[in-house]
């Protein structure tokens, strides 16, 4: 029914108004449109264009190549920066005969535990603060104070409280993780579009339906921003913790290497941290793309 209106309007209008296009080339008088090979007008594309798969690896690989060439050409003193193959060889050697396997396992386990606790705490606190005024009054200011205190500055206190074992390390990582998770999720929850709140009210949603179907899905993009910061943060704090107060782990391995002047072991440790940081960040990105399929933006 409704279609009739526009279809008649669309069909009849051209017959009356539009003059028949002249066949053949456009007359040369007046401004002539430039012809393009693609048959499209020449507009400047302002978005960065289509993304190629694995393009993000290009930068790191290039860096690696420069490093390798410089080493091969003898431009780098091996005591300052050993060649990539030396580092790889050291890695293989430590993996089979040394402690690399246990160090790696310990570091991964610490990061995972701290990350899990921090994630749960950050999400729980953000939900409490973002969904109730009482929760916000109790939690938000407290977290802001916590955020202002450098977490690594808490290490001495935590060692006194919790001993120099695993617990304090995991607590420190958890704190480093929960803060970005909390901040971003809370901001996203608090910043829910007022228009959607009105909509939910007119649809007579229950509070629980509103939270589950409107607030939380709407806050997910913000949550993922926090999650990516948290993943990187967990690795960052691990380096510091294991270099100061550890008897095993990657950081400890590097710390020991510093004492013996083993540059190749230090670089190996850095490489492993880098690879894990990059891989975990990529994993979060992948998850984000899966969960937020509805999003279409420059990044899609």
């Amino acid at each position: 029914m409704a279609d009739h209106v526009s279809s008649t309007a669309v069909v009849t209008a051209p017959e009356r108004t539009v003059t028949r296009p002249a066949p053949g080339p456009v007359p040369e008088s007046g401004p002539v449109r430039r012809a393009t090979a693609t048959g499209r007008p020449r507009t400047r594309r302002l978005s960065p264009g289509k993304r190629r798969p694995y393009a993000r690896l290009l930068g790191p690989l290039l860096l690696l190549a420069v490093w390798a060439v410089a080493s091969a050409a003898g431009l780098l003193d091996p005591r300052v920066l050993p060649a990539p193959w030396t580092v790889l060889h050291t890695g293989a050697h430590l993996w089979t005969t040394g402690t690399l396997r246990t160090d790696l396992g310990t570091s991964l386990w610490r990061a995972a535990q701290g990350f899990a606790i921090g994630l749960v705490a950050g999400v729980a606190l953000a939900l409490l603060a973002g969904l109730s005024r009482i929760g916000e009054a109790l939690i938000d200011g407290t977290v802001q104070v916590n955020r202002a205190v450098p977490t690594l500055g808490l290490i001495p206190l935590f060692i006194l409280w919790l001993g120099i074992g695993e617990t304090f390390k995991i607590v420190i990582i958890a704190i480093v993780v929960y803060i970005p998770v909390y901040l971003n999720l809370h901001a996203a929850l608090a910043g829910i579009d007022a228009r959607y709140v009105e909509l939910a009210e007119t649809l007579r949603l229950s509070r629980w339906q509103f939270v589950r179907q409107v607030v939380i899905p709407g806050a997910l993009p913000g949550f993922f921003v926090g999650l990516r910061l948290a993943v990187t943060g967990s690795w960052l704090s691990l380096v510091v913790l294991e270099q100061i107060n550890a008897t095993d782990g990657l950081g400890y391995m590097m710390f020991q290497a510093q004492n013996y002047g083993q540059t190749d072991v230090i670089v190996l440790g850095l490489l492993i941290y880098g690879v894990f940081g990059f891989a975990s960040d990529s994993a979060v990105r992948l998850l984000e793309r899966r969960v937020l399929t509805w999003r279409r933006s420059l990044s899609s």
């Binding site: 228009r195 007119t202 649809l203 999003r295």
Partner: peptide, 24 residues
Amino acid sequence: RVSVVFQDSRLLPWRRVLDNVLLG
């Protein structure tokens, strides 16, 4: 039973059309 239609559609961008109609 009151329904409201706004100037903007206020469809939730993260729900498919059917799920938007089913909301509440």
